[in-house]
Design a binder for these strands. Structure first.
Lengths: 272, 272
DNA sequence: CTCCATTGGGTACGTCGTACGCGGTTTAAT
DNA sequence: ATTAAACCGCGTACGACGTACCCAATGGAG
């Protein structure tokens, strides 16, 4: 173990910046750069949208811009950091309001809907996040809005759990929506072709009698027969019902008015 | 686009099998194979456990077994399918009981605890799943047990949403636990070193006054000061409270306790 | 027995991320 | 104004990667 690419124990890298957000885009000296992080990031996002994250290689991005691969390393420490820039860039598309409205359910519904649309536009996002938060500026804006909407008296740890539940649902729901498309890209089969090929396997599992839940999923689930957005909204309502149960009871407050910012709420929930 | 690795439009691959589970391990004719899918999968898992998923390359696995890289392709169509075998293999470690016990909360607690332990043993799992279900036998056993535990009168779609909430929480919680370790492996910094380097960035964000929730996370969150397992159990109880609220009211129980989730343990004096 | 499907394994191709170094350009310091 | 350091774009090169293709050896089916 640990034979080769290890560096020192405490230095990390040459610059000493621990993440991409602490590294300045350009120093003060030297000629003016021909490109920019934003341009590189947007190009990478465009390629990944069209052909997947793995297609957004350094060479491909550079070729799209019209330069050599190594030029990109003047702007970005490496590909992993560029991917973090891509993630935060598309997070900016959520464009949450500056402050929660006071109606937590409407706020989270808005955020979830925009997240779904954004994730459908950028199917590589789940793969690119793969766990680490990275605390980019746009990611922070989303966090502030979403967690702030749940600021109704719970401890911050519980607020984070609830916010994670909602965003986690959005992620997995969109992944399900994209599953057919991904499988198509992987196997070259259409949806009908995949169903036809899988039918023997699924039938074998069902006929074995050892998978009652799978049987019910195949036979009784209505999600495949609903519209994608309708299924998403339905599940989201269930998740928000769960969240609501974890929130402190709202109607009777024996204490003075909470410190939540009360905005004039003529925005009504857009639930169906 | 689509200039190179594209195949036909409807054939997919040579064999016609749509996923790895439909492809038989070995045909009837020819010499007896020297290795097996199980051996290859276990070797790959061992490498990924120790050095990450990307270290489990075909060449590396083959070298560990003591053969050439191309020999593995007699057992597995490609690396993506091998990763699916790895995922299902570690899913087998959950080893759920044959049938739910009747106490859905105990069952899901058991499954969540085993999932956390398993994911800590195999930190690459989240990266390897990256969205697609694949319906392997061990994955199906977990699905049958977990969803079956929630079979209390809800429609199957809602059961799936609730089960996904619980497993999604486990995933994200373990990812948080592993975040330090991953960052350490990436930057070569210790936890204290990372905190020291990030302090200026975090302080800048906090001092800007535009991130009240981040401020509360840094100042008030008790999770970093709890044990990892205690934090996990605490959040899990919150999630299960949410799930309970979505379940139909219990038909008959000896205890007439209302299903109201408790939202305040002992949170006293949160502001210093 | 013969036949040929299947075996393990080697070679080779195209791709990847990126370390390194070069000559030219810009700016801060003198 | 001069100089030297810092920074630019970019080409070359290296060691990986997944895997297509080819080969001789092998052993069950006829």
């Amino acid at each position: 173990m640990a034979d080769g690419t290890e560096r020192g124990d405490d230095t990390g890298d040459d610059t000493g910046y621990v993440n991409i957000w602490m590294r300045p885009e350009r120093p003060s000296r030297g000629p003016r750069p021909a490109y920019s992080r934003a341009q590189i990031t947007e190009t990478a996002v465009r390629i990944a949208d069209a052909e997947g994250l793995e297609a957004a290689s350094m060479r491909r991005i550079a070729a799209e811009i019209g330069t050599g691969a190594m030029s990109l390393y003047r702007y970005v420490p490496g590909r992993d950091d560029l991917i973090q820039l891509m993630v935060d860039h598309v997070m900016g598309e959520l464009d949450p309001p500056d402050r929660p409205s006071g109606d937590w359910r409407a706020d989270l519904t808005l955020l979830a809907g925009r997240s779904r649309a954004m994730r459908l536009r950028h199917p590589w996002l789940s793969e690119a996040q793969h766990g680490r938060p990275s605390f980019g500026p746009n990611e922070l804006r989303v966090l502030e809005f979403g967690v702030g909407a749940l600021d109704l008296g719970l401890p911050i740890d519980d607020m984070l759990v609830l916010f994670g539940l909602v965003m986690g649902y959005v992620d997995s729901a969109v992944q399900d929506e994209l599953a057919w498309e991904k499988e198509h890209r992987r196997s070259g089969l259409s949806k009908e072709g995949w169903m036809g090929r899988s039918a023997p396997y699924v039938h074998q599992l069902i006929n074995s009698g050892e998978h009652p839940m799978l049987t019910r999923i195949v036979r009784d689930a209505r999600q495949p027969h609903m519209g994608s957005e309708a299924a998403f909204r339905h599940g989201l309502e269930r998740v928000l019902d769960c969240v609501q149960a974890a929130l402190p009871p709202v109607p009777s407050l024996p204490f003075p008015s909470p410190p939540k910012p009360r905005h004039d709420d003529e925005r009504t929930g857009e639930h169906g």
